[in-house]
Design a protein around this nucleic acid. Structure first.
Ligand code: SF4
Ligand code: SF4
Lengths: 153, 153
DNA sequence: TTATATTAGGATAAAAGAGTCCAAATAATC
DNA sequence: GATTATTTGGACTCTTTTATCCTAATATAA
């Protein structure tokens, strides 16, 4: 798998948050219900995102989490880096230790191209962009149901 | 990680085999030494490749494994499919169950492009091609040492 | 001030991936 | 026929990832 499960959940949750009114705190419980992710697990993941400054959290009634920056300023790569780290950008195809351009393996050239494509995609896609697309085309963030089900309260 | 460790080891071993005289059986022990991979682990992996018809094995003294087809006919994708299965081609970015074009998530379009690039790379690269490149430029298949160390007996 | 809703954080459990070990089967050589 | 070199296959262990649970801290509201 390209991204860990934690990372995927983090992305889904971030998209959910980006679809909400800016500044509003959303309880994790609500998100885990809507997104069909284990509440406790999602909590752990969002704690990471909070620790990394991507989310902001607030305790107590009316508490929850929200994006720390507008969704237009959050790239998918930000989430991926916060959860999976640089692995995706550094590790690669033949996974030899201490890799890079200096001492490449035979796959390096081809792999580097592919990896750059992945990187570019993650860096050039913002949360808001996907939310707008999802809303316009009623795409899904869960197993069943379209984007719209996320907005029923 | 894009490819499992088993898969990476399988690729490295297949490249090794493709660099050898066609038809020659190579003992797994020799490969595991050269490639610095645990003998027992590599054995398990190569058993999978043998079961999938990518390699052929022969027991006893002078035994070992060899490619079942010429290296020019073996794509990287063949190895990846044999070890990691279709996961890479079917699963994806947001990893929603039962995914596909019918009921996509907001990332689908962008992801599909990226995934196709990965797929194309793996499908259009043959073992022989990489071996020739590795030989010509003395690239490496192990932590230290160039391609050439693989050929000392 | 008490009850309630929430995140934070630690401990633990279950599942998957990676790696090791051993006995059995097979083939060549002595 | 006995010994040796090799693959096969199963059982097992270790590590990492995924998931669950419980308690504490914090903020609101009654
Ligand atoms: S040389 Fe390049 S492709 Fe090969 S393992 Fe290193 S970074 Fe990856
Ligand atoms: S819709 Fe496409 S990108 Fe999204 S999870 Fe499914 S296959 Fe992957």
């Amino acid at each position: 798998m390209l991204l860990s499960k934690s990372c995927v959940y983090g992305l889904r949750a971030s998209l959910y948050l980006a679809s909400k009114k800016e500044g509003e705190f959303i309880p994790i419980k609500r998100m885990s219900d809507k997104l069909e992710i284990s509440f406790h697990f999602l909590t752990k993941i969002l704690q990471q995102l909070t620790a990394q400054g991507i989310l902001e959290s607030f305790k107590g009634p009316n508490g929850g989490v929200r994006l720390n920056r507008p969704g237009t300023d959050v790239q998918l790569m930000d989430i991926v880096l916060a959860i999976d780290g640089e692995q995706l950008l550094t590790e690669c195809a033949l996974g030899l230790p201490g890799c890079g351009i200096k001492n490449p393996c035979p796959l390096h050239d081809k792999w580097a191209e592919t990896r750059d494509a992945i990187k570019a995609m993650l860096e050039h896609t913002t949360l808001t962009e996907l939310v707008e697309k999802g809303r316009a085309e009623n795409l899904r963030l869960t197993t069943d149901g379209g984007f719209d089900i996320l907005f029923e309260d």
